[in-house]
Amino acid sequence: MKQKVAIVGSGNIGTDLMIKILKSSEMLEMGVMVGIDPESDGLRLAAERGVAVTHEGLEGLRRLPDYGAIRIVFDATSAGAHLDHAPMLRADGKQVIDLTPAAVGPYVVPVCNIDEHMAAPNMNMVTCGGQATVPIVYAVRRAVDRLIYAEIVASVSSRSAGPGTRANIDEFTQTTGQAIETVGGAERGKAIIILNPAEPPMIMRDSVFTLSQGGDEGAIRASIEEMVAAVQTYVPGYRLKQEVQFERIGEDEPAMIPGIGRVAGLKTSVFLEVEGAADHFAAYAGNLDIMTSAAKAVAERWAQTHAREI
């Protein structure tokens, strides 16, 4: 039996997630699409597909007669809005999957730590850059003795960045950097996002740089390739752009890591691209695709785990 879900936020991310659920989910059923603009494309598309809609935000959702049947609520609004939404949804007993950088609940990256947080009432999906790069950081960490530093650069088409994304740039860098450490396992993490205005729009590309000690290049490369294959099970367009690169940082010219000091080790450089499934937006919007695909995968695992409670 499918579990009913609501999506709060009818922008780019919420709309793409809705299309994915309608198109391919065997565990989830769209219950309500929630927005605040009655003229939004997301609400219009939902109504055209027979999904119940409200343009009165979370309060409008809570007033609907079928609200009690909703078990999972995806929040695809903004970090600030989610801080208001989270306590209300928790009080209502809803399982919350947060697609904003608010980080109220634990960071969840499906291929890294999904099973650790199945009991958490609020699961945070980090950011699109985090979903693309934290798995690589995690893959390096499991193959080395010490992962001193990890830095990621996420470059996305400005066309794929809606108002919610643009309003959350600071939260994006902070949340992604924290996830690099808490989920990826780096002692220090840093995140950078670039909104590229190029025309025609460019595909999402991500660069990951790590500095580690212990472990050998072959083991690191194998761990990364295994992780890429794991992410591809729910994001088929996720791939290495080129071979993994290595560089030895010697004691004679150590790298300066803020908060740690001068250290030697092995620098690993990984270059990725993410092609979207084009379920709703163009294939260049891989940043939307990896975020919504990861959220859908988490919700489906939760639904499967809690199926006996229905």
Rank of each mutant, 00 (worst) to 15 (best):
R63V: 00
E59P: 01
P106M: 07
L99A: 03
H82A: 13
A102H: 13
N113G: 02
L89I: 03
L89W: 06
D115E: 15
V104Q: 01
V53L: 00
A79W: 03
L45G: 09
A79Q: 10
I70V: 14
D115K: 09
L83K: 14
G57H: 04
A102G: 14
L61C: 05
K94Y: 05
A76G: 03
V73M: 12
R71C: 06
T54C: 04
V108L: 01
E56L: 14
L89T: 03
G68A: 11
V109N: 01
H82T: 15
P110A: 08
R90H: 01
V51W: 12
V109E: 09
T100E: 00
F74A: 02
D41C: 11
G42D: 01
A52G: 02
E59R: 08
G105A: 02
K94T: 07
I114Y: 10
L61Q: 04
V111F: 05
R62N: 00
A47C: 03
R44V: 11
V51D: 08
A52Q: 14
D66R: 11
N113F: 04
G42E: 02
V108N: 09
Y107C: 12
P65C: 05
L64D: 00
L61S: 12
R63W: 12
I97K: 02
D75C: 15
F74Q: 04
R90K: 14
I70K: 08
G80I: 06
H55E: 13
P65W: 03
R49E: 08
R90I: 10
L61M: 10
G68P: 09
A103I: 04
G60L: 04
L89S: 09
V73D: 08
